[in-house]
Design a binder for these strands. Structure first.
Length: 267
DNA sequence: ATGGCGCCGTTTCGGCGA
């Protein structure tokens, strides 16, 4: 089966693609990934900045809406077999543009922007749970259908104590770290066989992908790790490294998330 | 317990995110 000699995929919640476009173009030029998957593009498809990306040599599949959500997959060659939403449960995201899949260089990429949940007694928390149930079914199906699967994006759940900057007992009271949510994240991996790529190669605590704007300037190291690359069994031995590009936080008008880069190679 | 910041839009403040 086809497998490129190397594969570099990045995930980045940009919190408005139009506002962050210069940063995205600069980052692409500097890092030359095989693919970059974006969340919170916050732009409807008619206004997607396709021309500027094309001029810089990048093709795109995108699924957006006005103001909120929005996901896109960028690559040098046009992503193929593009799927909007979960193929196994299209209504699970309730019309919100949060899920996009496409094939790049023989790898099936699933780009995810899962709900944050707001509070455990909020309807948004129940929505988050339904999205995780649909995600689990989707990953089980994808793992059976495609030889190489990477499910990347903003999962809005920190996996364990290493991924939060405060004691776990205190974090457990907060959405994105409740034991219930951690169970959803663990169950998704157990059922599908996909694994958090970072933890295959790095057990360090204090590696973060999201930084609360409200803490910015006061406590810039006060982040959480809520963005992941989940890789299917065939790719797990090929994970070389996962890096978090926190330097973008020093740019003017940064996103609250940083690019997370997964590099694979043949063993 | 609260709020802090940043983005969006039939925009100049309220809704939403995390």
């Amino acid at each position: 089966m086809f497998m490129p000699a190397s594969f570099k995929v990045a995930t980045w919640n940009v919190n408005s693609l139009r506002l962050r476009l210069p940063q995205v173009l600069a980052w692409l030029n500097e890092n030359q990934p095989t693919a970059l998957v974006l969340q919170e593009t916050k732009v409807e498809d008619a206004l997607f900045p396709l021309a500027a990306l094309n001029e810089a040599g990048w093709q795109a599949a995108y699924h957006g809406q006005k103001s909120y959500n929005g996901v896109a997959i960028l690559a040098r060659e046009a992503p193929t077999n593009v799927q909007l939403g979960f193929s196994t449960n299209p209504s699970a995201t309730e019309g919100q543009a949060r899920v996009l899949a496409a094939t790049v260089q023989g790898v099936r990429l699933l780009n995810l922007y899962l709900p944050q949940g707001e509070a455990t007694d909020s309807p948004k928390f129940a929505f988050k749970q339904r999205c995780y149930a649909a995600l689990q079914a989707e990953l089980v199906a994808l793992a059976a259908q495609y030889p190489h699967v990477i499910a990347s994006g903003d999962y809005n759940i920190a996996a364990d104590a290493r991924d939060v900057p405060i004691p776990a007992k205190r974090a457990e009271k907060q959405v994105m770290f409740t034991p219930e949510e951690q169970q959803w994240l663990a169950q998704v991996q157990a059922a599908s066989g996909l694994r958090d790529a970072l933890r295959l190669v790095n057990q360090d605590a204090g590696i973060y992908s999201w930084f609360d704007y409200r803490m910015y300037g006061r406590s810039p190291t006060h982040g959480w790790r809520i963005d992941y690359h989940m890789v299917s069994p065939t790719l797990q031995p090929r994970v070389r490294r996962v890096t978090h590009h926190t330097a973008v936080r020093a740019l003017p008008q940064p996103s609250d998330h940083v690019p997370v880069v997964l590099e694979l190679e043949l063993v």
